[in-house]
């Protein structure tokens, strides 16, 4: 049995060994917020956080991350209360078709948790693995920049 800790919950799973983390999240745990658009680590839609770092779940073996803290998009909001990043993406019009958004938010969270006041270049650099075909980059970057400042203000926001 493999124990995966996802969004602060423990899951005991009977894994065979070949499963990617992405498959486990979507097909075994029903957490379909994490997407995939390429299956070859190019698009970033499968981005999740492991121990606070942005990683690609499509090239992560589920068995390799047993016992580590995995956070997906479903783990951000607290009940009805949206995470500042989620709120900022709505407030600054960063949402279009939405397929890239979970990956973008998770990549941004990893950045802002360590550095809530990044420069535009630093945001660009941290999000360079995330594609948005709708081309919403200007508003996405703005939302992240604003969210960081909000997160710094609300210092009590749990990481």
């Amino acid at each position: 049995m493999t124990t995966l800790i996802v969004n602060n919950r423990k899951y005991e799973l009977n894994l065979k060994g070949h499963e990617t983390l992405l498959e486990v999240l979507r097909d075994h745990l029903g957490l379909t917020g994490t997407k995939t658009a390429c299956e070859e680590s190019e698009c970033g839609t499968c981005t999740v956080n492991i121990n606070g770092k942005a990683v690609l779940s499509c090239v992560t073996f589920a068995c390799a991350v047993e016992g580590e803290e995995i956070t997906t998009i479903e783990g951000l909001a607290q009940g009805d209360l949206l995470h500042p990043l989620q709120q900022a993406f709505i407030d600054y019009g960063a949402v279009q078709c939405g397929f890239c958004i979970p990956g973008m938010i998770m990549a941004a969270k990893a950045l802002l948790d360590k550095n809530p006041e990044p420069t535009r270049e630093e945001i660009d650099y941290a999000l360079d693995g995330n594609l948005c075909r709708c081309g919403g980059y200007p508003k996405i970057l703005e939302a992240i920049w604003q969210a960081g400042r909000e997160m710094k203000k609300e210092r009590s926001w749990p990481q």
Partner: peptide, 9 residues
Amino acid sequence: ISTQPIRNM
């Protein structure tokens, strides 16, 4: 090297 999540892995 590549992109941020890849640099993390």
